[in-house]
């Protein structure tokens, strides 16, 4: 049984100009211990799909799916209360802007503890110990001192480490990372990606990486889904995707990478639209 299985997921937003289809019938499957990358440009629906799983979409969104199961449990029929027991514990998510995702009014230690308070039966003292342990696990220096730091006293990379610590606090079975390194410097990006992959390998959890960066895909993924305007263009394991991309859009994305430039000009997606016709 796959960890997460979604069939024919559709998301529509009600807008002033009528319904807008953000996602038009996409399937996702994630096995335990697997790293799935969802790649696409803005508007491809890559974040919307995972927000739908998390139940974080606004009321204007209509979500339909033929199947939406996490460990065999139907996510569609869960009540809000039951869903909250799963979300944040078995499935957790980290976002793009680490500094904006943390509450500026509370110390990072307090915010880490909140997750444990909500999902575990640990006592006060045990929670404190677990927070220090978590901060060590994500490689934050001097956790005993850092516990009482506020988000603004930390760098972007450190805040992202706190977010990761929060996400893995209850040993989730599935971690969803939505552009976790887009706002960070390359050297920090490398550290965060290495950390995520290491945590994933140590714990055997499933990891979904949402990204627009083909480099990040190449460095982390086992399997890749390429999306464009709410549709799945291609799904393949990482090596065959880069070695032998099947879909014209994937080829377009890969050749738009500046390091793959052959002539004086970079090919753009529009160069491929005519040929591929997607």
């Amino acid at each position: 049984m796959p960890l997460l299985e979604i069939r024919n997921l559709k998301v529509e937003f009600a807008t002033a100009k009528g319904p807008f289809k953000a996602l038009d019938g996409v399937d996702y499957t994630v096995e335990a211990g697997e790293v799935l990358a969802i790649v696409g440009e803005s508007g491809s629906g890559k974040s919307v799909a995972m927000l739908a799983v998390m139940g974080l979409l606004p009321d204007t969104a209509t979500i339909t799916a033929d199947k939406m199961e996490f460990e065999g449990r139907d996510l569609r029929t869960l009540s809000a209360k039951e869903r909250r027991k799963v979300i944040g514990k078995d499935i957790s998510m980290i976002f793009q802007e680490p500094i904006a995702s943390l509450n500026p009014c509370f110390t990072v230690g307090h915010q880490l503890e909140e997750t444990l308070k909500a999902h575990t039966t640990l006592g006060r003292r045990e929670r404190k110990a677990r927070v220090i342990e978590l901060m060590k696990a994500v490689g934050l220096p001097k956790p005993e001192e850092r516990v009482s730091a506020f988000p603004h006293q930390m760098s972007g990379g450190q805040c992202q480490r706190v977010m990761i610590a929060m996400a893995i606090a209850c040993a989730p079975k599935l971690l969803i990372a939505d552009e976790p390194t887009t706002a960070l410097d390359v050297t920090i990006q490398k550290q965060i990606l290495d950390l995520l992959v290491k945590l994933q390998q140590d714990s055997g959890m499933g990891l979904i990486m949402i990204t627009h960066d083909m480099g990040v895909v190449a460095e982390t993924a086992d399997r890749v889904i390429v999306q464009y305007k709410g549709n799945k263009m291609e799904e393949a394991d990482v090596l065959s995707l880069f070695e032998n991309p099947q879909h014209a859009y994937t080829r377009a994305l890969l050749s738009a990478l500046p390091e793959n430039a052959t002539g004086d000009r970079l090919p753009t997606v529009s160069d491929f639209v005519g040929a591929g016709g997607f």
Partner: peptide, 15 residues
Amino acid sequence: AATPNADVDSIKARL
């Protein structure tokens, strides 16, 4: 060293 590498050889090496 930190810049992600998108060429096929480095993916093979990682896998």
